[in-house]
Amino acid sequence: MNIFRLVGDLSHLLAIFVLLLKIWKSRSCAGVSGKSQILFALVFITRYLDLFTNFISVYNSLMKVIFIASTVATVYLMYIKFKATYDSNHDTFRIEFLVVPVGGLAFLVNHDFTPLEILWTFSIYLESVAILPQLFMISKTGEAETITSHYLFALGSYRALYLLNWIYRYYFEGYFDLIAVVAGCVQTILYCDFFYLYITKVMWGKKLSLPA
């Protein structure tokens, strides 16, 4: 474990709980893409299948349980409890256009052609594009609530910190996973546009609104 990965995991945890609290407190999921949340739930479920078979550490197992439970809870709040506030008119990204190609790629490009490894690879590829429905929704509505932009900033920062973690592990541990690094780069690049808007606007107390 290194500082980059620890701060990255905490940033990820923060993002998930900021969103969960926003929905729970405001009793509304306006401006939030339920499709992205479904994809994140799929990412965690397919990635943490080894939760019961492969014990790494208490931290590792605890975080896996928290990530799965909180993301499933978010999907539940959005599609069941506060369904009336779900903005389906703007959350129209066709996620099958993400899941199918990512599923095919996971079969073709992976480290080992075994079920667990292919599911892990699927999860890594899917996570890199899972935020697209959310970014697409913001581009359609033209703006995002400040709390939602904080959520996105923390979420985008987590994988950027993981990139630093992989640089650290490459030099100090000789650890390198090309699939995770490439997907992590794609994932972080997708946030660049948002990071720019966040730093130039939200940091100065303005609302995040995309240029119409």
Partner: peptide, 10 residues
């Protein structure tokens, strides 16, 4: 073949 590296990352 692929040496089994334990996936210790989240």
């Amino acid at each position: 073949d692929y040496e089994e590296v334990t996936k210790d990352e989240l």
